[in-house]
């Protein structure tokens, strides 16, 4: 194994780059091999909290554990004693689903201690710079200073679209939902092609179109693992620019797209932009997927099954040319001519 991280100091420096932000008062589970996710949770403070954390983690870790799975438990907190208790508890619970904890590391921003061995050391600027330089070389985005600053990056200037929203509403009222849906899908396709930011007028029209659930769903169903980057760019921009009354939909779309790319932390930050006083069922369901640690491949698998069913239905309903048996779903009685019969 070509180790990039070669010490606890370097591991602590690398964790923010993998998470996308610098964690605070948190436990981070870092896998040593592909297969398991990286997970960050708020550091539990009581025995009951520790059990709740395990309740939440047992689902995804129980589902994804493979023989030989191992993780590092990294506690980032000022409270070393609590870190020791929480990491021991988590290590014991992970063992029950076949996951070994190779290290239990605590750090407070200045010092670290590995509980299993008792080794200690300092967190150094040199390690942080070395890891940062490595990630710059790979073209990775540098981590946000905190989870809060990651959330704050989704708040932009919302006034320009607010000023044209009323006009967009009047124009939508004079149009038809299907015409607006077609426009929205065309505009999405154009964005996929050129990546150019929507004008305020187009942005307002898109946000109004999203209020029709069938239109929103048509845009939602366009998402796949192949185009998440483009969807994230579009919905991130509109979430930043959307006034409160039309922000729930783009924020939920951003949440879903972020989850589909595997990034639960950014998905949560997107859902934070859904106004508190505007219940939105898509946001609630995406939140449930995040809480349950649902793997995005489950959605891909489900969509593939749905496409298969839809395709079978399409074939069943296509009118047959004259002269052919018009009856649908009749089992074949003769083998296909281009395939050998069994035993032939």
């Amino acid at each position: 194994m070509d180790l990039v991280v070669q010490s606890p100091d370097e591991l602590l420096a690398a964790v923010p780059h993998v998470l996308g932000f610098k964690p605070e008062e948190s436990i981070v589970l870092v896998p040593f091999r592909p297969g398991l996710p990286i997970t960050r949770v708020d550091l539990p403070r009581t025995a009951a909290d520790r059990e709740e954390v395990w309740d939440a983690l047992s689902g995804p870790y129980g589902r994804h554990a493979l023989p030989g799975s191992c993780v590092g438990i990294v506690c980032i907190t000022q409270d070393r004693r609590n870190a020791e208790l929480a990491s021991q508890h988590l290590s014991n619970r992970l063992e029950t689903v076949g996951i070994t904890s190779h290290l239990r590391l605590w750090a407070d921003g200045e010092r670290w201690r590995e509980f299993n061995t008792g080794a200690t050391g300092l967190q150094t600027q040199e390690a942080a710079e070395r890891i940062a330089a490595k990630t710059v070389l790979t073209g990775s985005v540098q981590p946000a200073a905190s989870r809060e600053s990651l959330s704050a990056s989704l708040v932009g200037d919302r006034e320009p679209i607010a000023q044209v929203l009323e006009t967009a509403r009047k124009e939508a009222a004079a149009s038809t939902p299907s015409a607006e849906r077609d426009w929205a899908l065309d505009r999405l396709e154009q964005f996929h092609a050129d990546g150019n930011r929507l004008s305020d007028v187009d942005g307002a029209r898109m946000l109004v179109a999203l209020e029709t659930i069938s239109t929103r769903d048509a845009l939602w169903e366009d998402m796949s693992t192949q185009n998440t980057a483009s969807h994230i760019a579009l919905w991130r921009d509109l979430t930043r620019r959307a006034p409160e009354e039309v922000r729930a939909a783009p924020a939920s779309m951003l949440g879903f797209a972020s989850w589909l790319r595997g990034d639960g932390a950014k998905a949560w930050c997107a859902l934070d932009q859904v106004p508190v006083d505007r219940p939105y069922s898509m946001a609630a369901i995406v939140a449930s997927a995040l809480q349950n640690g649902l793997h995005p491949r489950e959605w891909e698998r489900h969509q593939a099954q749905m496409r298969e069913v839809a395709s079978e239905l399409d074939e069943s309903f296509v009118p047959k040319p004259p002269g052919q048996n018009a009856q649908r779903d009749v089992p074949r009685t003769q083998p296909s001519t281009d395939r050998s019969a069994p035993g032939r």
């Binding site: 990039v4 780059h17 960050r40 708020d42 939440a56 595997g262 809480q291």
Partner: peptide, 29 residues
């Protein structure tokens, strides 16, 4: 797809799960 049934959305209990993380930065090739 959400199993078990969707839990209540509790902003105070965030679990950030990063699926298929890029482990290159941690462990290299």
């Amino acid at each position: 797809l959400v199993v078990p049934a969707p839990a209540a959305y509790d902003p105070s209990r965030r679990i950030d799960v990063i699926h298929e993380p890029d482990l290159e930065v941690l462990w290299g090739g």
